[in-house]
Design a protein around this nucleic acid. Structure first.
Lengths: 269, 269
DNA sequence: CGCGACTTTGACAGATGTCAAGGCTTGTGG
DNA sequence: CCACAAGCCTTGACATCTGTCAAAGTCGCG
């Protein structure tokens, strides 16, 4: 009998990609083996050769790279319902390491089974590719976040993104979700130090935008959050992602940026 | 008659993925339309619906995201021989914009043709997916670069990476390549300001590690460059990528980083 | 030759990192 | 129920890195 998590995963892929009942069934009947990972455990290391993909049942996983000194950068935080390393099917040598941020239950799905389904059903192959591409798009946004936003905006962006990915729809005032992760994890995700994460969380709290405490995130003022983060969900492969969110004007940009860095034709003419 | 660029592309995919002669031929015979893009022109904008993928014949393309104020972050620099937006086949709504950094000649390949080949030949579908995943891996490394390295290391890393991707093998002393891009472009790629890029280039020059000037990059001391960048090509999907490069000890880390941020099990035990 | 774009430099400002100390929470064992 | 310890959070003072602004220099091209 198929696992519940696989059923949910199959349904999501089916609606996003318009899969037939047969194709959906093939996904539901994928073989899988449950496993539990302790908090803070690295369960895939850079360069490891892996032969299973991991579907998160519950918990949070960080995909990261690490320097020789142990400095970490979490490149993507993955949440329940997502497959953590789907692209390892085509790139079995791990090019990112994986770390459980909390106690995490996963379902391991062998590559050979995924490959077999993909070979048999081109639509499924395309769905897998699309799922990988959607993750890559989030990583690209992370790069933007790290390269071009200040700490408060970075944190605000992460919160807004997680809120949307969680419910697979745009969030609002009062949205609240469990995110039992330490400030050091947030630091690794946002390219900051734990100390500065602390200051940043405080700023968001004092501005009554959002709170992050005791493993919970609560959004107090969604409009302000979006505005501070310059969040626009267009990069998320979600049905509601193209509902337009415009930043409100209470977070004025430094006008010099336009002159200094916006050499080419403006995008949002 | 197939275009030369397509032949080269087909050959690379074939050797990386062990494609048959028939499959390779299908790639070579993909329909394609040449186009030229002026320097600094944005030819795909965020959210555009695209129906062709672009193979770079010569020139450089930046895949980027941009804030409302025009602040740009180039997330991936693409070089001749690469397809710039292969994953648009499965995600036709552009989730990154594309900008020509120099005058660029491309070959446009219609999605329907790529999709047809992928549906007919599962190996080719897998090769496309793998090519996308390899690009995603580079973007992930960019995120690490932006989040966790200081300006000199960032620039050194970009130089080392481009040198390797250029020749598809590990570079060395004296490696030299054309890279006719402005310092403002480098700033967009490295999440810095043009002024600071200038200071950073100067530092690399004064330390006799590498020079960046008049559209050329020259590597004077590959070992030092690798050490400053903490460059390890494992994240590149290249045959030589697992030749081990260890950083030399002349760039000591702050030992506190290990204590402060390396909470979980070390990777390089 | 002269213009425009790009590069280079210096002085100063602001953001984030570093270090160190103390407070709070949570879970454990008596 | 209390005491304790370990890990995490919070705060302040100071250092360092990068951004900002402004001006001058250089290069390439018409």
């Amino acid at each position: 009998m198929p696992q519940q998590a696989l059923i949910t995963f199959a349904r999501r892929l089916a609606t996003q990609n318009d899969l037939s009942e047969v194709e959906q069934n093939a996904l539901r009947n994928l073989p899988s083996y449950p496993a539990q990972i302790k908090a803070n455990q690295d369960f895939v290391r850079l360069g490891d050769r892996v032969d299973t993909a991991c579907l998160i049942v519950d918990g949070f996983v960080g995909r990261f790279r690490q320097s020789y000194q142990g400095l970490r950068q979490i490149v993507l935080i993955q949440i329940p319902g997502e497959i953590v390393n789907l692209s390892s099917v085509v790139l079995p040598r791990a090019c990112s390491a994986l770390q459980a941020l909390t106690v995490t239950n996963i379902l391991k799905i062998p590559h050979h089974a995924l490959r077999a389904v993909a070979e048999r059903y081109p639509n499924v192959a395309q769905a897998f590719w699309r799922e990988s591409a959607a993750n890559a798009s989030i990583v690209a946004e992370t790069a933007f976040n790290l390269g071009r936003r200040r700490s408060v905006s970075r944190l605000a962006h992460l919160i807004a993104e997680l809120a949307c990915r969680h419910e697979r729809k745009i969030a609002g005032d009062g949205t609240q979700f469990s995110f039992p992760v330490t400030q050091a994890h947030l630091a690794d995700a946002l390219g900051l130090t734990p100390v500065h994460i602390n200051r940043t969380i405080r700023e968001l709290r004092e501005r009554k935008v959002a709170t992050v405490a005791r493993g919970f995130v609560e959004i107090l003022d969604w409009q302000a959050l979006v505005s501070i983060a310059e969040f626009s969900p267009a990069y998320l492969d979600m049905p509601s992602a193209h509902r337009c969110i415009k930043p409100s004007p209470d977070f004025p940009p430094s006008p010099s940026a336009v002159v200094e860095l916006g050499r080419a034709q403006p995008l949002c003419g």
